[in-house]
Design a protein around this nucleic acid. Structure first.
Length: 90
DNA sequence: TATCTGACGATAG
DNA sequence: CCTATCGCCAGAT
């Protein structure tokens, strides 16, 4: 376990239900601004996290998991449109 | 220590 | 609107 991973896990676990954060936001909140690219790796390694509450900066969903991703968010009340998150993260 | 990879982000075409 | 490239960072090999 690395400090980075612990930080990301903490932030993602703290995302309120029905809300979504971008990878960049998570990385910044975790204390690693700019490391949004590495956030995905943590969500993969820790599937026990609400990874579906993390989306791309442009609202895009996880490649290949768009279907599942959209469904999970939709179940929490998150507005999805054309495979993209509509509800603002804040 | 060096090199490759990727659930990103922004810009260009 | 979509794909491609560049820059970024941390992880894995």
């Amino acid at each position: 376990m690395t400090p980075y991973q612990r930080a990301v896990v903490a932030v993602v676990s703290a995302i309120p239900k029905g809300e979504v954060m971008t990878y960049g936001e998570v990385a910044t909140e975790a204390g690693f601004p700019g490391a949004g690219r590495a956030v995905g790796g943590v969500l993969k390694a820790f599937d026990d996290l609400p990874w579906w509450r993390v989306v791309a900066a442009n609202g895009r969903l996880a490649p290949g998991l768009e279907r599942r991703h959209a469904e999970l968010l939709r179940s929490e009340g998150v507005r999805i449109d054309g495979g993209r998150v509509v509800g603002s993260a804040t």
